[in-house]
Design a protein around this nucleic acid. Sequence first.
DNA 1: GCTGGCATCCCCTTTTCTTGGTATATCGCT
DNA 2: AGCGATATACCAAGAAAAGGGGATGCCAGC
Lengths: 259, 259
Amino acid sequence: MCIEVVEGFVGELQDANLEKDLALALTKATQQLGFDHFALTLESPSSLETAPAVLLHDYPDEWARVYVSFDLAGRDPVRRACDKSMVGFSWQKLERLIPLTRGDRQMLAVGRECGIGDGYTVPRFLPGTTRGTCTFAVAPGQELPKPGLFAAEIVGGLALVSALEICGDAGRPAKAVLSDRQRDCLLWSARGKTAAETAIILGISAETVVQHLKMARERYDVHCRQSLILSALYHGLIGFGDIFGWRARTRSIAALLDS
Amino acid sequence: MCIEVVEGFVGELQDANLEKDLALALTKATQQLGFDHFALTLESPSSLETAPAVLLHDYPDEWARVYVSFDLAGRDPVRRACDKSMVGFSWQKLERLIPLTRGDRQMLAVGRECGIGDGYTVPRFLPGTTRGTCTFAVAPGQELPKPGLFAAEIVGGLALVSALEICGDAGRPAKAVLSDRQRDCLLWSARGKTAAETAIILGISAETVVQHLKMARERYDVHCRQSLILSALYHGLIGFGDIFGWRARTRSIAALLDS
DNA sequence: GCTGGCATCCCCTTTTCTTGGTATATCGCT
DNA sequence: AGCGATATACCAAGAAAAGGGGATGCCAGC
């Protein structure tokens, strides 16, 4: 009953090139899953203080007006809770994630007066790039449709991906691919090592490291190390995971089961 | 057929207080969903550099040994792709997320030789706190179980949440916050400007810029500019949007449908 | 066989960054 | 009134990076 909704949503996203398409698909999925409203936000880090990059919703006008005019986004407890959860959460469980002030409760109450009761919010992050939320809400007095929550998690995530693509992740400049060695040098540089240190680590001459970095800069058409690292990071050639290291305490399942 | 697996997994997680419980639940769900292997990684929330992360898996010993002994985690393309996706992705679509070097392809090939074919990896983030991945893989030559992918997305997310809870200290973001001026200098530095250029832009002395950057480095306890910028980026103090410049847009669905 | 990409090494100069100091003035808070 | 944080400015020594030359092998593709 819910799988079909998700699959239908995926099908509609295939052709979604505009926000309008996404909004329509979300509207449909929201109803099919047993929710009354949806709201999708996607912000770029540069607009931390200002507006989200994308804001789609079918909330009642009244609530939207209140929310925007009082700049409630800045104190929205749901938004705060998003920073505490890797998966979607019901608003009923907000208190398990964050402490709720009186103002927070008041804000939720005002939402109820405007026709927004309980909700399920799906947060997603791309560290250093963007973050977004997709919320599905029901009218006051109604319960969240339990069978629809898993589907909401999927639909919300996919909607955010779609929004990101529509929004302009499409700006994918020419991918300057580095050689493996160039990437190695770049990576150790990103980890804070100097060329000399990198040379020792890689077992090659410092001059060679400098040379690799030099050519890497030429590839990306930048003139300094910071920009090289940031470009490579932005284009996905390296990731934060590479930089900060996942020195893992390794537990194979066999070892766990033996104990 | 898949909903039941997810619900069963949720049920088992209720009582999961140890890594072992989680591992067993994951093993069961993996099989039920039609996958052959799973691997879960979770970076430690407490500190980036030294502290351990969680790594649970039932990969073939051979692959685990190769992966660890050659420090392949440092160049794993799947991990890099995680930094580019808000939802799970099939390894077949790696190239849509990141450029693959020759070494990357080779690494995937070695994985196949060790019994790891295609995979579906679910990345999740809590910016400034932790990050994790949950991968479900099949043997070489086999296709990913399509009906199980949505369920894998849910199971993976829930497994990561569970791992985070088991792991304990889910608190303390403990970000080093910079002063406004320090952030300004940092930002222009990230944009590729030298201290002298930044000084002209901000209308202050070059020495002052150097001083701000110096104190910012102390705050983050790093000793070079690259690490400073990357730390600030990772912790969300600056974003790619600030560096490369994006534009914000706002659309309500009503406005979209009117057009 | 030749060319181009790759990896390795070496030289040089100039610019920039890092690190250690010192110093003044403002602002907010107690 | 004093303390701490902030912002501003300066100096000097040494390390590192940037930008410009070279050079040698190896390997794959045409």
